[in-house]
Amino acid sequence: MGSGDLFLHFPAEWARRGALVLVPDLPGHGRSDGLLTYVPDWWAWVDQIWESIGMMLAEEAGGSLPTFVSGASLGGGLAVCLCLKQPKFFQGAILLCPMLTVSDELKPPWIVQQVFKRIIAPLIPLWPITPVKELSAYDFRESHHGEQLLKENPLSMMGLAPRLGTGREFGFTYPDWLDEHLSEMRTPFIIMHGNADKITDPETSKRLYKESTTVDKTLKLYDGVYHAELLFCLPGSFKGIEWTAEEVKATTTCMEDGAAWMAERC
Rank of each mutant, 00 (worst) to 15 (best):
G4T: 12
D5G: 09
W14D: 10
A15D: 08
R16M: 12
R17G: 08
R17P: 01
G18Y: 14
A19W: 15
V23N: 07
D25V: 01
G30H: 02
L35G: 03
P40T: 07
S52E: 04
I53G: 00
G54V: 01
M55K: 12
E59P: 00
L65R: 15
P66Q: 11
F68L: 08
V69P: 01
P87Q: 11
K88A: 14
F89D: 06
F90Q: 05
Q91F: 07
A93E: 03
L96T: 09
C97V: 13
E105K: 14
E105L: 14
K107F: 03
R118Y: 11
A121Q: 02
L123H: 01
I129Y: 06
P131W: 12
E134S: 08
S136T: 08
S136A: 13
S136W: 09
D139F: 13
H144W: 13
E147A: 15
L150D: 05
L155F: 10
S156K: 06
S156C: 06
G159C: 04
P162W: 04
R163Y: 01
L164D: 03
T166C: 01
G167F: 03
G167P: 03
P175W: 05
P175E: 06
W177Y: 15
E180M: 08
S183N: 11
P188F: 12
H193E: 05
D201A: 03
T204W: 11
K206V: 11
L208F: 11
E211K: 10
L231I: 15
F232L: 10
I241Q: 14
T244Y: 10
V248M: 13
A250T: 09
T251W: 13
E256Q: 15
A259P: 04
E264G: 04
R265Q: 05
R265L: 11
